[in-house]
Write a protein that binds this DNA or RNA. Structure first.
Length: 195
DNA sequence: ATATCGATTATCT
DNA sequence: GATAATCGATATG
């Protein structure tokens, strides 16, 4: 599922328009046997969405600062999910930049190198993309991301992914070494290149 | 480009 | 009471 989600759009419907980013980097988290997964120690109030039916948003708050967005991926009763690590901004860029705390004028000013580096900072990272789409546990945890009625949704627009790179996951110590991070080869919006 | 460090709080032991 | 699926600022090369 982590591989299959690459290239799909993650969209947020707002009263002012639709925000959209292309999924360019993901990580898979399993259940028992994957000590890095929140589901590893069993079902709790926090992680219960991971044990529910597939296609639902699991949002957690980390380091006292950031929200991170996942989608449950396995049949009801079996824990597992995919963490969204990076998006390539597609539409609603000005709104996403504003949500990230940038000056809107700076993003739309000129297409020089400084502006391009700002564009990369909008949604390349799990905490960043959550902030850009205003994802919080309170608002979004448990939402059905496969439903057309949802304001937080995964959409297939037909985009074809050429080549995928597989590496170990970022920022974990337990169960490191598993090759469960996936990203689109050559995409400049991936959160980082090295391990 | 790479490394180090502090911030800040929900969640679980 | 300790920990954490991160980020941004700062320092250094």
């Amino acid at each position: 599922m982590a591989r299959a989600l690459l290239g799909k759009l993650l969209i947020r419907k707002t009263p002012h328009g639709i925000l959209a980013g292309r999924i360019v980097e993901t990580e898979a988290y399993l259940g028992k046997g994957d000590a890095a997964a929140h589901a590893a120690a069993g079902r709790t109030a926090r992680n219960s969405v991971l044990f529910g039916p597939p296609g639902h948003a699991y949002v957690y708050f980390i380091y006292g600062n950031h929200h991170c967005l996942n989608v449950s991926c396995l049949p009801d009763g079996v824990p597992g999910g995919v963490l969204f690590r990076a998006l390539e901004p597609v539409s609603g860029i000005e709104q996403m930049a504003e949500a990230r705390g940038f000056e809107p004028q700076l993003v739309w000013g000129r297409a020089d190198l400084k502006q391009i580096s700002l564009l990369k900072k909008i949604s390349s990272g799990p905490g960043r993309l959550s902030e850009a789409l205003k994802v919080t546990r309170e608002r979004d945890n448990g939402k059905n991301m496969a439903s057309a009625r949802s304001d937080l949704q995964i959409v297939d627009d037909g985009y074809r992914v050429r080549r995928v790179i597989v590496t170990t996951r970022i920022g974990i110590v337990k169960s490191a070494g598993h090759l469960l991070r996936y990203f689109i080869a050559g995409n400049p919006f991936v959160s980082r290149r090295s391990l």
